[in-house]
Design a protein around this nucleic acid. Structure first.
Lengths: 110, 110
DNA sequence: TATTTCAATCGTATATTTGCGATAAACTAT
DNA sequence: ATAGTTTATCGCAAATATACGATTGAAATA
């Protein structure tokens, strides 16, 4: 928290960076894809389709939860996960807002 | 390259993760913002507006270049940088494609 | 009740990222 | 030629991230 000077940057900059960080690992992208392709929540089964140990997958799920990209509930012995579309849309909006402000085909650019 | 099993995941998953990784640090977001807000390329001046050492900023710029998020040219003793809007748009597209496939307001979700 | 199953957490090893100062390389100005 | 600018790179220290096996706890089942 001292060498990584996150406090020196604005809230928006950190928000965008944090979100990006959540999907900055192929395993987390794969997990999201696996959850998103279902009609309902996914209960269990995530570990089986990933080339990673159960504890590792659990850690990645924890990070996705922390970023509020997924929601989780407990169903008996199983854990169920869903995409949190609200967060996905919020990121989309923040990203577009951030990058769409300026001229995207400036001839004066190098 | 062995402990981080990136090879085990698909090309698209890695592409999305790599892009996200490039903007997963507030300093890099701040750098992009600084470059994007100009009408033309930014030559020099980046270091002054960031709370980081020159060498650190240079490293972040290198990463943004690697991700092709910015382009760089040399103008005498100065280095000029521009946003590579093509990459920004490609990410936007990949991201939307990835997340828009499924129902975003599924009542069966937890 | 005893056993099995599922998933979170702990402990640990290794790899990567972040950050800075020092230096180098290349151009500019005197 | 010399001195000053600007930026990339090197070398290092510290922080984080990634991955796994082992363990734990809680619920399901025999």
């Amino acid at each position: 928290m001292s060498i990584h000077k996150k406090d020196e940057f604005s809230k928006k900059e950190n928000e965008l960076a944090d979100f990006a960080n959540a999907i900055s690992h192929p395993a987390r992208v794969a997990i999201l894809k696996e959850i998103a392709k279902r009609e309902t929540c996914i209960c269990g089964e995530i570990v089986e389709v990933l080339p990673l140990a159960q504890s590792t997958v659990s850690q990645h799920l924890k990070e996705l939860l922390k970023a509020e990209l997924i929601t989780g509930t407990v169903d008996g012995v199983k854990s169920c996960y869903c995409i949190n579309w609200k967060t996905v849309e919020r990121f989309e909006k923040t990203f577009n807002e951030f990058f769409k402000k300026t001229n995207s085909n400036n001839p004066k650019c190098c």
